[in-house]
Amino acid sequence: MHWGCFSIFRIRESHIRKIHYSTALGAIGLVALHISVRFATGSFAASLSYENVISNYQNLTYALLLELILILVSVHGFNGLRGIFLDYRSGYKYEKTVNWGCFLFALSIIIYGTITIILANQIKI
C-alpha cells in the first residue's frame, strides 16, 4: 500500500485529491459570494469603509463565511503548491520538507486569519 505525501497524517494521495476537489468546489461558491457582497453593498469603495468592514466581521454568518473561505482556500492553495513542488523534483528528504513546509504555512495562515476574525469581532466603534 502506498501512503502518499501528507504522510504526516498518513492520508493516501487519492484521498488528498478528493480533499483538493471538494475544497475547490466549496471555495468557488463561497469566494463568489464574498466578492458579490463587496459589490452588492452599493459601491466597491463604500463596502471597504472601516465601519462597513467591521460590521461585516461582527455579523456571525459573515464571520463564519470568512472562516470557511480561510480554511478551504488555505488547504486547497497550499496543497496545490505542494503538488507543484513535488512535480519539480523528487527525493525522500525533499518531499518531507515540502509536505511539512506547506502544512505549516497553511496552518499559520489559518491561525493568523482566525485571530483577525476573532479580534475584529470584539472591536467597539
Binding site: Y50, G113, L119, A120, I123
Partner: peptide, 8 residues
C-alpha cells in the same frame, strides 16, 4: 489575509 489584520 495579512492585509486584513490592519482592520484592527
Amino acid at each position: 489575509v495579512i492585509h486584513a489584520m490592519s482592520i484592527l
